[in-house]
């Protein structure tokens, strides 16, 4: 019978541990990327509270909030997918992971609608656009809004791709009950994408 672990690992358990540790370290490097952006946001906000207030009162709060719900539900379906794989129910896991990816697509569609609405109003990064003629204080907020939500959206897109790829591998029995940790790794990344939005949402849309 073919070994499920690579030759240079003593066992599947050791391989899974190495993969998990590597993923956590990767997630921390992602966290540090966003750390720089959150620091920029916090410092800019402390420096220019009026401009931020002006920008935030015009943000698409309802669409942003719907997107929060979509991502939170997607994290739940992702966790259910992992659990299904642990219970050796690959078909259920496949559909749950695919549902998670679909919710990612819904998130991106709403985000594009939100961007389209703002661009229509004349709100562009860097304080460009007609809207800023009557709202001269808000360019910094909107530049950070586009930068941070844009980088986050790229992460959602990458996460969706990984989820679909993993779902296909589950369907093709390339990921099985014994190697279910491979699904865990992709879902860990998806949870990080959710975690970042959990903080972006109140800071850019609510308070």
């Amino acid at each position: 019978m073919r070994e499920l672990h690579a030759d240079h690992f003593e066992s599947l358990e050791v391989q899974a541990h190495a993969a998990r540790l590597g993923t956590w370290i990767f997630l921390c490097s992602e966290l540090l990327l966003f750390a720089g952006l959150f620091t920029l946001l916090a410092a800019s906000r402390a420096h220019d509270p009026r401009g931020f207030h002006e920008g935030m009162t015009h943000a698409a709060r309802t669409l942003g909030s719907i997107n929060t719900g979509v991502l939170l539900v997607s994290s739940t379906t992702a966790a259910l997918g992992v659990q299904a794989m642990r219970e050796n129910r690959p078909s259920r896991a496949f559909w749950l992971v695919l549902t998670t990816a679909t919710l990612g697509l819904v998130f991106l569609a709403i985000k594009i609608a939100e961007y389209a609405e703002h661009i229509d109003e004349g709100i562009l990064p860097g304080g460009h656009g007609a809207w800023f003629a009557s709202h001269a204080d808000a360019p910094l907020y909107w530049t950070l809004y586009y930068l941070m939500t844009g980088i986050h959206a790229i992460h959602v897109f990458v996460g969706m791709g990984l989820l679909v790829w993993t779902a296909v591998r589950v369907r093709a029995r390339l990921i099985v009950h014994e190697t279910s940790y491979k699904l865990d790794l992709v879902v860990l990344y998806w949870h990080l994408v959710d975690l970042i939005w959990i903080f972006l949402w109140p800071l850019l849309y609510l308070a």
């Binding site: 998990r20 921390c28 966290l31 540090l32 410092a43």
Partner: peptide, 27 residues
């Protein structure tokens, strides 16, 4: 998770907190 993964995550959060607090305090 094993201690090594917890350590990696806590290190990330700690560095994020230091960066945030010092940058905002500066401004």
């Amino acid at each position: 998770a094993r201690a090594s993964a917890i350590l990696a995550f806590i290190s990330g959060i700690l560095l994020l907190a230091i960066l945030l607090v010092l940058a905002v305090a500066d401004v």
